[in-house]
Design a protein around this nucleic acid. Sequence first.
DNA 1: CTTCTATATTGATAATCATCTATAAGTATT
DNA 2: AATACTTATAGATGATTATCAATATAGAAG
Lengths: 315, 315
Amino acid sequence: MKLRHLTFRLLEVYVAVIRSGSLSEAARRLHLTQPTISLQLKRLSEAVGEPLIEFRQGHLFMTAAGEALFSACQDMLGRFEELQEQLQGLQEGRSGHFSIALVNTAQYILPRLLGPFSQAFPEVEVTVEIGNRAQMMERFQRQQDDIYIFSHPPSLEHALAARFLRNPLVVIAPAQHPLAQAKKLPLSALQQERFLLREPGSATRMLFDSWLQTHGMTLQRSIQMASNEAIRVGVAAGMGIAVISQHALPAGNQHLVELDLDTPPSESYWHFIVRREHRLAYSARNFLHFVDRHLEEHLDARYVCHDLHELLNSV
Amino acid sequence: MKLRHLTFRLLEVYVAVIRSGSLSEAARRLHLTQPTISLQLKRLSEAVGEPLIEFRQGHLFMTAAGEALFSACQDMLGRFEELQEQLQGLQEGRSGHFSIALVNTAQYILPRLLGPFSQAFPEVEVTVEIGNRAQMMERFQRQQDDIYIFSHPPSLEHALAARFLRNPLVVIAPAQHPLAQAKKLPLSALQQERFLLREPGSATRMLFDSWLQTHGMTLQRSIQMASNEAIRVGVAAGMGIAVISQHALPAGNQHLVELDLDTPPSESYWHFIVRREHRLAYSARNFLHFVDRHLEEHLDARYVCHDLHELLNSV
DNA sequence: CTTCTATATTGATAATCATCTATAAGTATT
DNA sequence: AATACTTATAGATGATTATCAATATAGAAG
């Protein structure tokens, strides 16, 4: 038995013949002529090296070899269909895997999108990479992930970016802070405060620095901390005040207050970023589509932006 | 994904590539050139409609689609090998099915051959048809079975016959019969006995009748019974005497004696018979081979004939 | 015995394929 | 940069295939 030239088509023909119990009927079903079926069958039989069917009393019967083949055909074609199903799932993004890399602060947002997505598409596996901006930039350079989330997108030469959420910054202070209840504070009022800062290079820090600069201020005292958590806890404990993303601020924290400034820190936007040349995994694409459809549903509608459409069209 | 022209060969190539992790290496293993592999892979990828592999850091990786395909390939090729194994089993007669039809008396012999055969080839299914000569002749005419066992083979025009065992006939009487101990009895001494006979048409009856005829005898009294069992029991119970195949006579029956005649009934032979045109099932052929090899082992060596060889050569 | 229907065969054609050699182009290791 | 791998592409060839229309043949039904 030489498998070499056995084609799935041939097996399909055979199965059709057996199922319909007649060559002509099979021909009709497959939209072929009867001689074609006859020939195919002959070829198949030659490949197997045994007669497969025989006619007795005008009816078609399988030989033992024919039955073995038929059973094998069903199994193999069944597995083949399963494969097709699987591939289709991949192409429609219903299954598969993608990875998404985000800077620390974004981890307060992404789960609200990823959670519902995973429920809707349980077959999709997602790897989430989290780190500071420098680390994520490195991953971006190396093209290690399908999707990135930055608030300040890197050079758009090799990437496409789409805003999806405003990223308002707020100044937080401990609840007992003397200025806690003040209104329309001038920035200068904070000159003497001790600031808890994210590391240089982080988006929040970059925004903060430029905010200071536009107001011609320099800090007297500051402490650098690598995580929003640490800063939040630090502020609550009275170590100082800080500027952080509003999203990193859980609602109803009794130990913290937002200071009301006359010129609040300028805000930025969260972006989805994909590499231009890296063909987006179907599942990743599907995720972005999902996000585009359900942004308002899962995130604060006041801050939502709808730029994803364009990105999805050009990928 | 168009399955039409997907050939098993192509899947084999793909599996070889993945297993070896390199096109060139796969080419070497399959005794092909590298460009061939490259092209095949391209074709396969086109058929699937997705890239299957990609190279990163000089190493080959599968895409998600590639992995799905690979897994499917393994399954399908595995099933294919199983089929090949099955077909080979059929061709060697190690598996499959055949039917053997025999007249009643042969059922005392066949199990001794069929038992060991079934042990040696547990995968072979055998259907045993048993009936009187008329019934078996009808089956023979209709070509319903692979092998027949007759003591008088039917017309050899459409069949081949091979003797494999002598079929000696004996005259049995109840143990208390007045002639039980007599030596060299003339046939005429039995003239007045009541004979228990098999039905006309049965081989035993035919032999018996011709035996009588050659001695110019006619029976005074007889009773017809359709089975050897019934006759044996009948004789033991004193209903009369009978001529039966020695094989139908269990050794050491206290209630029966064999009469010692000066001219014993002529004996016949058991034959295997196969139809000339009907291609013998591999398993049936294998059975005959088995029998040919193990005749002495399982049957009384004194009665064995070795004609099977010729039959097997000409089928 | 004829008629129908089903299968087998023949002959032809265009497409596809497997496979080769030769060559280009891309990487990784000196 | 050079070398020694790799993979990719091009062009050629002979084999194989799928497919058809037309026709022959066999088996069943009337």
